[in-house]
């Protein structure tokens, strides 16, 4: 089943066109790493998927259901809020800056969305949250506030928080870019674990080594379009496009 499908998606902020016609289809269980220079539209593409941004043109399907459609920057389709909400909760998102809720303990960070969005029973939500926290190796930190955790720990809590909504697709927007180098490994390990469990993942990253190891497909974006895509070997080791080569030369 196609989990995510973008058809000729464009996105402009005022006069600045960030996405210039992106076509992408992601299958269930696929791990897709997206690389590219900053400003190439990687993050914007992810943010369009869960309606943090609304597209200017094109179509987006989540699990083969239309989630956003627009032509020529007008006539945005009205999708009923319940559908949008259920589509968006199928997409978990992990942010570069973690964005944990600082006024809530680690456990409450993980349970709050199931409790108020899904109206889950408190006991059920807490049991599940503890499972997720032990999966990311942080069950002993459940009563701490986020400010007491390291960046790597915060990001792992953020992953548990996103997983608590039972997403079918996990999106990572440069999840290790704000971390000290020695903390990157623990977050990547958690993500690797998720990939092994068969989670469909869309990962915007600068960690080329990680992409090579876990990605089923690597996408190189440049100037608002997908410039090159293929297996990690194809794109990272034997890039065909000049732009891919020069980007990889710069960062490796």
């Amino acid at each position: 089943m196609s989990m995510v499908k973008l058809v000729n998606v464009r996105k402009s902020f005022g006069d600045l066109e960030v996405l210039k016609g992106v076509n992408l289809e992601v299958q269930q269980g696929e791990v897709v790493c997206i690389i590219g220079a900053s400003g190439s539209g990687k993050s914007t593409m992810l943010r369009c998927l869960n309606h943090l941004e609304r597209i200017s043109d094109g179509e987006i399907y989540i699990e083969d259901v239309l989630s956003d459609k627009r032509a020529n920057n007008k006539d945005q389709i009205k999708i009923d809020p319940v559908t949008v909400q259920s589509l968006c909760t199928d997409l978990g998102m992990v942010f570069q800056n973690f964005n944990l809720f600082p006024h809530l303990t680690v456990l409450d960070n993980v349970t709050i969305a199931p409790l108020i969005v899904k109206k889950e029973d408190k006991k059920v939500a807490e049991t599940r949250a503890l499972d997720l926290l032990s999966m990311v190796g942080l069950s002993q930190k459940k009563d701490e506030y986020p400010s007491r955790l390291s960046g790597g720990q915060q990001q792992r809590v953020a992953i548990a928080r996103a997983l608590a909504m039972d997403p079918k697709i996990m999106m990572f927007d440069e999840p290790t870019s704000a971390l000290d180098p020695e903390l990157v490994g623990e977050v990547l390990a958690t993500m690797r674990q998720l990939a092994e469990k068969g989670m469909t993942m869309l990962i915007v990253t600068h960690e080329i080594g990680f992409a090579r190891e876990v990605a089923d497909r690597v996408i190189f974006m440049d100037g608002g379009v997908i410039c090159e895509e293929g297996t990690p070997e194809e794109v990272l080791l034997n890039p065909k496009e000049e732009r891919t080569k020069s980007f990889l030369n710069k960062i490796l």
Partner: peptide, 13 residues
């Protein structure tokens, strides 16, 4: 602003 985005990404109104 990331707080509102995180909340929305989790499905909150």
């Amino acid at each position: 602003g990331g707080q509102m985005e995180a909340a929305k990404a989790l499905g909150m109104s």
